[in-house]
């Protein structure tokens, strides 16, 4: 009896096991679990997940844009280099063209000058021949005139010829 009393006192001191308490605790805890998950932790977790995704996305986007910028800058450098080369080539070409044109012009001028010179020479020759011809014609008529004059004076044919030739010679030398 004494032992039983002591036992029950300890039991009571600890509060004992109350079935209703235990069932209520289980019920309350499960209800609380469902409620806080739905109204508190669920949204917080969603928000944290969303932030995580956002940050990951931002990092990815930043990396991508950095890569793109690098690519664009490389392209620009490449293009600049190409443009420089092209410009240099154009200048060189222009220089070459200028030199060639200069030579062409000089050659053409020289050829033209030659042509003109030759033409002038040919003209001169021509005129000279024409003059000679005219002179000869004139000399012939003159000689006929002279001959008639000489005949009048009865000059031998030998003298006459000599006279003509001398005359012509004289004229030729004068020319």
């Amino acid at each position: 009896m004494q032992a039983f009393t002591e036992y029950s006192v300890i039991n009571a001191a600890l509060g004992g096991f109350h079935v209703v308490d235990m069932i209520t605790q289980l019920f309350f805890f499960l209800i609380l679990l469902i409620l806080v998950r739905k109204f508190a932790w669920g949204p917080v977790m969603d928000m944290m997940q969303k932030r995580e995704d956002y940050v990951a996305g931002e990092i990815e986007a930043a990396e991508k844009s950095r890569e793109e910028a690098e690519k664009a800058s490389n392209e620009a450098v490449e293009q600049l280099k190409q443009t420089k080369q092209e410009a240099q080539k154009i200048v060189e070409d222009a220089k070459n063209a200028g030199v060639r044109q200069e030579q062409d012009i000089i050659a053409a001028a020289r050829a033209e000058a030659d042509r003109i010179k030759h033409a002038a020479q040919a003209d001169i020759q021509n005129e000279k021949e024409k003059a000679l011809q005219a002179l000869q014609d004139k000399v012939a008529s003159l000689s006929v005139l002279i001959a008639s004059k000489v005949i009048e004076k009865e000059i031998s044919t030998q003298d006459q010829e000599k006279l003509i030739n001398d005359y012509i010679k004289e004229v030729g030398e004068e020319l």
């Binding site: 079935v19 605790q25 508190a40």
Partner: peptide, 21 residues
Amino acid sequence: SVNLSNILMMFITSVIVFVLC
């Protein structure tokens, strides 16, 4: 059997946790 104090405190604790969260 039931300890009413336990029931009360479980309820209060649950409500405080819920409201704070």
